[in-house]
């Protein structure tokens, strides 16, 4: 057990490795997306029904973050040493 622990990454590092890179990449994706398209082009119906740009930007960002976060979570999950599956 102690041998495994020596290879172990601190829990806080795992949490950060999921939350933080996903936050950064979704930010970059967000900038590129809205550099090319305006919210009016992407969601004309929402704009017409009175939804503000701020809400569209925010929800887009949170959605992108959720997507990248899921990907980071899966990476973290698959990075677990395989030999431990049989422990």
């Amino acid at each position: 057990m102690s041998d495994i622990n020596k290879e172990e990454i601190p829990k806080i590092q795992r949490i950060i490795a999921v939350l933080w890179p996903s936050f950064l990449t979704s930010g970059v994706a967000m900038i590129i997306l809205y550099w090319i398209f305006s919210p009016e082009e992407l969601f004309p119906e929402l704009i017409a029904s009175g939804v503000g740009n701020m809400a569209i930007y925010s929800v887009t960002f949170l959605f992108l973050w959720l997507t990248t976060l899921t990907s980071c979570l899966l990476s973290c999950y698959f990075l677990r040493p395989c030999n431990r599956c049989n422990d």
């Binding site: 622990n5 020596k6 290879e7 172990e8 601190p10 829990k11 806080i12």
Partner: peptide, 13 residues
């Protein structure tokens, strides 16, 4: 300090 930081359950001081 290996024991302190590498253990999964060790709390950061």
């Amino acid at each position: 300090n290996k024991q302190e930081y590498d253990s999964l359950y060790a709390k950061r001081k």
